[in-house]
Design a protein around this nucleic acid. Structure first.
Lengths: 211, 211
DNA sequence: ACCGAAAACTGAGAATAGCTCGCATTATTG
DNA sequence: CAATAATGCGAGCTATTCTCAGTTTTCGGT
């Protein structure tokens, strides 16, 4: 059981839940998941440990709740890339640059939170499938754009999924690891260029250079 | 402290350490990391809990030791790809097919162990850097091959690193997630083809088709 | 062979952290 | 203004990691 065991109905309890999640986010980010006790979370939230367990069946459930907030925000942010694409109908390089930039922003906006979830998600059974689900949604939207552009080879759906998985891993490696040999912007451009080559039809025109 | 606190010097103690690691591997794979207690590991290994903590300062250290064994084996296996390449000097598609196949074999050989380490590894600081180090070693060897083939764009070193990160993530997604929509072999071929496009020089010949 | 020292082993229990449960307090309803 | 429901409380139960003082085994030197 990873979902709240009881829905807060009154205003007071909704504030309690908010305070608990806020405290959990802060302490998890500062001391890591294992280094944070549920008693400390309750204390910092200004509620008793009993109240915490009234809304969250166990410690993992706190993480799942934080992840869901984060995934919602992320889906919305990446969704804007495709909203823009539907309107402006960009060429492949521009679309990829926008996507890479937005995913990079997800990492750099709140690096500690992103890292926390990325590190802990695999440990928590329910979270992996939620992340995969988000991945699929983004891949689906990307696949539609690839089809519009005549890119992505014989199976744009599969290509899009591989691209999303690859981009996420590459940006995670580039942005969340301390030793950053080479500047970040160059790394982002390299990722963009690489995926343009991977996804573009061989006959298509090359991307326009910008000095 | 994640490294053994005491080096086993006598034959007897080396066998004790082996038994502990063997028991840990079995129980972790069967019941997961959190579901396995150090007392159960000691019991199955046929030693007392005190002996376990004489060689491993904490539970995480067991995981680190298992991961190091596994990483050594993996480095050796992937190293063979480049040993073959140095001898036979394959074309880019063949090299990539060999690399993808070998990395896929790492996942499918002992899926439970791979998953265990992949899932739990990020939790411990020491392991992340070990994984990155292995990643870099493979990327370095791939970069040399790309240079030989005149592939990988203006910065073959960076392209190789992005390729290794991408391939690992894509194969993990393809091979370790339960719902496998589409057969695995097709997925491997798609990954290979995608990276061929990404890394090949635009002017170079296309890969030979094999029906 | 024997002895002293070092290495290895033991397991009860100290320390700690997740979580429960019975009861007190506050809000809502009719 | 009861009566009922929702929320809050925290001492303490349980389970697990890890320690330590004492015992047993191995080994090098004579």
């Amino acid at each position: 059981m990873l979902t709240p065991r009881k829905q807060p109905r009154q205003q007071r309890s909704r504030e309690t839940v908010e305070a608990i999640l806020e405290a959990a986010a802060q302490l998890f980010q500062r001391h890591g998941y294992a280094g944070t006790t549920t008693n400390k979370i309750a204390e910092r939230a200004g509620v008793s440990i009993g109240s915490l367990y009234q809304y969250f069946p166990n410690k993992d459930a706190l993480l799942v709740a934080l992840a869901e907030h984060y995934l919602d925000r992320s889906a919305e942010q990446v969704g804007r890339v495709f909203a823009r694409a539907a309107e402006r109908r960009p060429c492949l390089p521009d679309l990829l640059a926008d996507l890479v930039g937005e995913v990079a922003a997800l990492h750099t906006d709140r690096p500690a939170l992103h890292r926390l979830l990325y590190d802990q998600a695999p440990r928590t059974p329910g979270l992996v499938s939620r992340f995969r689900q988000a991945e699929r949604r983004i891949a689906g939207a990307l696949a539609d754009e690839l089809r519009r552009l005549g890119a992505g080879g014989p199976d744009p759906g599969l290509s899009a999924l591989l691209a999303v998985q690859g981009i996420e891993a590459q940006l995670h490696g580039a942005l969340l690891e301390p030793q950053d040999d080479g500047d970040t912007d160059a790394r982002l451009r390299a990722v963009t260029r690489l995926w343009h080559r991977a996804l573009a039809e061989p006959g298509a025109a090359n991307p326009p250079h910008r000095p």
